[in-house]
């Protein structure tokens, strides 16, 4: 006996196996990201007054990434439609676009991570704080591009402050009480930011690998079994759209609020 309904839909459910599988998987993904979003809401609601950051992330880059993903969702759909109407060349074109868009997304994400990595908050012995991007550091001093503040709270709400000065500041190591970069350990917001976007980026990476496989070596199936191949494109597309869907919520909760 062969496994039935791998390609044709089962009459009473109207769906083929892999589509049931991917939707079940997506349901569990909803709960996975649901757990993380719950953590986000809970930790944000429980945060101390005035210590939830606003405007820490670059809205321009976030918007760029959102548009990139939205566009890739469109090309994914068109790639599937191209398969359905039997236009293999179009499929190749649209999924090539998807892959390029996805890799660009990851590139932008890497840049953003790097930007946080070299961003330091330095506690000085005179009670002030210096905050900015590291330019140079040696045994005796640290040079950052940023500003001084007297109240740590001023580092949190950047939206209400107008343009942030970016002066070159050289600080002697002997004046420094402690310094810490904007990694996930810095505060709860960044912990959430890195965890949520990191997990999302892993999904993007996984999706890109799958789509890349189906675009490259996997597309040989088109000749043998075009219907099954079209189904594969649909199923991988559903996953890709879900990843886009997650970003649609990640973007506002991390970048805009």
């Amino acid at each position: 006996m062969e496994i039935p309904y791998t390609v044709k839909p089962r009459p009473d459910t109207g769906i083929y196996n892999a589509k049931v599988g991917i939707w079940l998987f997506l349901a569990s993904e909803v709960m996975l990201f649901g757990g993380l979003f719950s953590a986000y809401v809970l930790l944000r609601v429980g945060a101390d007054e005035g210590y939830w950051p606003h405007g820490w992330l670059d809205v321009r880059l976030g918007t760029l990434n959102t548009v990139l993903l939205a566009l890739s969702a469109i090309t994914t759909l068109l790639a599937w439609v191209a398969c359905k109407v039997g236009q293999f060349g179009r499929f190749k074109f649209f999924h090539a676009c998807t892959i390029v868009l996805a890799l660009t997304f990851l590139g932008v994400k890497m840049y953003e991570y790097h930007d946080k990595w070299i961003h330091y908050e330095i506690k000085l012995k005179d009670g002030r704080f210096a905050d900015g991007h590291m330019i140079a550091s040696d045994d005796t001093s640290v040079t950052i591009e940023g500003r001084y503040v007297t109240d740590e709270k001023a580092l949190y709400d950047l939206r209400s402050q107008g343009p942030i000065p970016r002066d070159e500041i050289k600080i002697s190591r002997s004046d420094i009480l402690s310094m810490e970069n904007y990694g996930p350990w810095h505060n709860t917001f960044l912990a959430l930011y890195f965890t949520l976007t990191g997990l999302h980026a892993l999904h993007i990476l996984g999706g890109t690998l799958v789509i890349g496989y189906l675009w490259g070596p996997g597309s040989r199936m088109w000749k043998k079994d075009p219907e099954r191949f079209t189904n594969r494109i649909e199923v991988s597309g559903l996953f890709w759209h879900f990843v886009d869907l997650v970003w649609i919520f990640l973007f506002p909760v991390l970048y805009l609020t």
Partner: peptide, 16 residues
Amino acid sequence: LCVASINAFLVAGFLM
């Protein structure tokens, strides 16, 4: 979040 939900509806309803 309301707008994001509409956005999500577009993606889920039509693209998916």
